[in-house]
Design a protein around this nucleic acid. Sequence first.
DNA 1: AGGATGACCGGAC
DNA 2: GGTCCGGCCATCC
Length: 118
Amino acid sequence: MDFYKRVEYVCKQIPRGRAATYGQIALLCGMPSHSRQVGYALNKKIKSPDIPAHRIVNHKGYLSGSASFTYPDTQESLLKKEGIPVTPEHTIDLKKYAWRHTLDDAIRFRTYFAAHNL
DNA sequence: AGGATGACCGGAC
DNA sequence: GGTCCGGCCATCC
């Protein structure tokens, strides 16, 4: 069971123009209480250009990871480029732009992890 | 070994 | 609705 590989896989499935929360990623990884480790993973373990890390925000919609991008406003511009407005307080409207994953999504991830020994 | 740290969360109020 | 607070847990030092 490789939690960080799971995080990497799930993050890549976040659709363009939508944002997910750390807790949501943790849940889809099968470890609902590991939201902090998701942040840790993005910051240290799986930093990579092919992971849409800018689409991950905290449960209030705040861009808590902005300081870890090359420039603090990198995350904001990436989001705006996808059509997600960012307020001056560095938050987005989760009511409108949250990724609403389905139960089928969750099941698909679970079977994928089982099949690939993650 | 054990206390501190962190891109966090949900419930209580 | 909003803010606060206790809980959370792998890593780091």
